[in-house]
Design a binder for these strands. Sequence first.
DNA 1: TCAATTATGATAGTGATTATCATATTCAAC
DNA 2: GTTGAATATGATAATCACTATCATAATTGA
Lengths: 144, 144
Amino acid sequence: MAFDEEQKILDDFVREKGLKHSGQRKDILLTFLKTEKHLSADELYALVKKKNPAIGIATVYRTLKLLCESGLSSELRLGSGAVRYEHFYGHEHHDHLVCVKCGEFIEVVDPEIEKLQERLAAKEDFSLQGHKLLMYGICRKCKG
Amino acid sequence: MAFDEEQKILDDFVREKGLKHSGQRKDILLTFLKTEKHLSADELYALVKKKNPAIGIATVYRTLKLLCESGLSSELRLGSGAVRYEHFYGHEHHDHLVCVKCGEFIEVVDPEIEKLQERLAAKEDFSLQGHKLLMYGICRKCKG
DNA sequence: TCAATTATGATAGTGATTATCATATTCAAC
DNA sequence: GTTGAATATGATAATCACTATCATAATTGA
Ligand SMILES: [Mn+2]
Ligand SMILES: [Mn+2]
Ligand SMILES: [Zn+2]
Ligand SMILES: [Zn+2]
């Protein structure tokens, strides 16, 4: 069975919090991990239902919250509309170029930008904990 | 009467779009301009009502949309919760340090970061139109 | 096996925003 | 100035993405 590491992370998190195990959470986790996309709760719900049609949307929301808390997933908020979730564990930090035409995400990192953010925060005597950088524009494909 | 430039921008925008003028929009604009804060629609509504108690929240939302379209205001989305609006016309582009404790915004710019974003986008053959950089952490005051 | 505790699914409720609609205003043409 | 077609407004219903509630089911340590 794949995704052993990720499953262990969730199991440990659940145990540590005094929670109990459930098949639904496992189904949701595995479905989430199988897709490398930036999914909304609704989109993930649709996918999980193929494997387990009895599942409820509330459980998907509850599980996504656990995945974020345990470090397996992280939120992505663009404009209005639903929050999207992406893999976090085992993925390097990255920022996103978002195509305003087709909605495509391009994942990017620039170590220099990361460093300059630290410098910028330090100048304000601000303890930087994290950041979200979204860059909007037109992707290569959409430029034609 | 102050804010002549801004009023002209809205007037021109309204005329160009074939819309009509209204006192409510003027009240909302002037109230928005008088406050240098990052306001939500509800907060602005509360302020405008002091000057014009008959005004409706729907008109505040409609006007904020016009202000953004005409380049007088721009949206700021942090986490969940209401969208916030800040002055755009006559203000240099800037990004924000957001204190996760007190909610304070610190406005910052780093020309090098701006430039590196362009380089990053160019590398992906992506036409950059804009960006939103939010940096989260603890501000000087909250560190004590 | 048992009992305490947590998980689940259905669904009601919420908060922010948007749509609808009857009425009021604006404004160009007379 | 009056008119009338078009837009604006305020009240409020509707929507969207969640979040809370609750009765029932599953988990788990004793
Ligand atoms: Mn990503
Ligand atoms: Mn600002
Ligand atoms: Zn594209
Ligand atoms: Zn602070």
